[in-house]
Computed example of a mutant assay.
Amino acid sequence: MPESVSKAPTINLAFTGASGAQYGLRLLQCLVAAGCRVHVMVSKAAQIVIATETDLKLPGSPSAMQKVLTEYASAQPGQVVVFGREDWFSPPASGSGEKAPLVVCPCSTGTLSAMATGASNNLIERAGDVALKERRQLILVTRESPYSQVHLENMLKLTQMGAVIMPASPGFYHRPESIEDLVDFIVARILDHLGLPQDLMPRWGEARVNAKMSRNDGFGQQD
C-alpha cells in the first residue's frame, strides 16, 4: 500500500438497496479524488440496484468487487477496500477498529429500521450500530417517497441518537442542466458534512461574497 494511502483519512461507505446508486458511486469517486481511503460495504439488494440503474456490474466476491470499484473510481492500490457482508473482523465491525465516519448512500428504509432498533444482522447494520454507540459521524442518505410514519419515527429516533438524515432531495437553485448536476448537489452536501474539500457546486452565498470582495477590492471596505 502506498504511504500516501496508509496515512489518508478513512471513510466507511455503505451501499444498500434503495434507488439512487448514482449518489453512492459518485461519492466514491469524489472521496478517492479527495485522497481518502474508502472502506466499502455493499448489500445484496444494492448489487441489484446498481446493475439496474447503471452500467456497472459488481461481481459477488469482495476481492473481485474491490478490483472493479478501484478501477471505476481511478483509485490507487489499497485506496478502496471492500468488506464482505459478514466480515465481523473488519474495522467497521468494532468500536476498537479505526475511528471513521460512516455514510450509507443510498440508505434503504430497511437499513434505517435496522439501525434505529440496534439490529446487527450484517456488516452494514453492525457498522451503523458501532457508529452510534461510539458517537461517530453517521450520515444516512435516505431515498424513498412518500415516507410512512414508521420511516419518519425511525429518522427522528436516529437523529436524536446523533445521526444526520440527508434525504436524496436535490435543490434546483443552482439551475441544474443534467442528472449529473442533481447527483452532484447531494454529493457536495455529503462532502461538506465530512469536512472534505469539494468544487462540485458553490456553497450558498459564495458568489455574493466573491462579488463584494471583487467590487471592494479586498477586505475592510464598505459599500
Rank of each mutant, 00 (worst) to 15 (best):
residue 118 G to P: 11
residue 160 Q to C: 11
residue 171 G to A: 04
residue 75 A to T: 07
residue 154 N to S: 07
residue 111 T to W: 15
residue 125 E to M: 04
residue 143 R to I: 05
residue 107 C to A: 06
residue 2 P to Q: 11
residue 32 V to S: 00
residue 25 L to N: 10
residue 185 F to N: 07
residue 93 A to S: 01
residue 173 Y to H: 14
residue 128 G to E: 00
residue 144 E to V: 08
residue 118 G to D: 08
residue 166 M to Q: 04
residue 46 A to D: 14
residue 217 D to E: 14
residue 100 A to D: 02
residue 160 Q to V: 14
residue 195 G to T: 15
residue 110 G to K: 14
residue 214 S to H: 06
residue 182 L to M: 15
residue 58 L to H: 10
residue 39 H to Q: 09
residue 161 M to W: 07
residue 140 L to I: 04
residue 53 E to V: 01
residue 167 P to H: 08
residue 17 G to F: 06
residue 208 R to L: 06
residue 27 L to P: 02
residue 94 S to E: 08
residue 192 D to H: 07
residue 149 Q to G: 01
residue 134 E to I: 09
residue 196 L to E: 13
residue 163 A to E: 12
residue 135 R to S: 09
residue 214 S to R: 07
residue 54 T to P: 01
residue 115 M to D: 01
residue 24 G to Q: 11
residue 16 T to C: 02
residue 195 G to F: 15
residue 63 S to P: 09
residue 1 M to N: 12
residue 95 G to S: 07
residue 5 V to K: 07
residue 65 M to E: 10
residue 219 F to H: 15
residue 219 F to M: 12
residue 119 A to F: 11
residue 45 A to P: 08
residue 131 A to R: 05
residue 184 D to K: 00
residue 163 A to W: 00
residue 182 L to D: 01
residue 131 A to F: 06
residue 126 R to L: 09
residue 2 P to H: 03
residue 115 M to F: 04
residue 29 Q to L: 10
residue 7 K to T: 15
residue 64 A to V: 11
residue 52 T to Q: 12
residue 116 A to V: 06
residue 191 L to N: 06
residue 157 K to S: 13
residue 27 L to M: 12
residue 82 V to G: 05
residue 28 L to V: 08
residue 128 G to T: 07
residue 52 T to E: 11
residue 38 V to W: 10
residue 188 A to D: 10
residue 16 T to M: 03
residue 198 Q to E: 13
residue 108 S to C: 09
residue 104 V to F: 04
residue 66 Q to A: 13
residue 202 P to G: 00
residue 192 D to Y: 15
residue 126 R to T: 13
residue 147 Y to V: 04
residue 166 M to A: 12
residue 91 P to S: 08
residue 131 A to H: 09
residue 54 T to H: 07
residue 4 S to K: 05
residue 54 T to Q: 10
residue 74 S to Q: 14
residue 154 N to G: 03
residue 94 S to N: 05
residue 190 I to P: 00
residue 30 C to P: 13
residue 36 C to V: 02
residue 122 N to S: 02
residue 185 F to E: 13
residue 79 Q to V: 01
residue 80 V to K: 01
residue 100 A to E: 05
residue 85 R to F: 13
residue 202 P to K: 03
residue 94 S to Q: 03
residue 197 P to Q: 10
residue 82 V to K: 12
residue 31 L to V: 15
residue 39 H to E: 08
residue 168 A to M: 04
residue 38 V to L: 14
residue 188 A to L: 08
residue 205 G to A: 08
residue 156 L to Q: 11
residue 26 R to G: 00
residue 192 D to G: 06
residue 166 M to R: 02
residue 135 R to D: 04
residue 187 V to R: 05
residue 184 D to A: 07
residue 122 N to A: 02
residue 25 L to T: 00
residue 209 V to P: 13
residue 18 A to R: 02
residue 201 M to E: 01
residue 30 C to I: 00
residue 118 G to W: 01
residue 140 L to P: 00
residue 192 D to W: 05
residue 46 A to W: 00
residue 90 S to I: 11
residue 150 V to A: 10
residue 191 L to A: 12
residue 35 G to E: 03
residue 20 G to A: 10
residue 21 A to G: 02
residue 40 V to I: 15
residue 18 A to Y: 00
residue 161 M to T: 06
residue 99 K to Q: 02
residue 1 M to P: 07
residue 177 E to F: 15
residue 67 K to W: 11
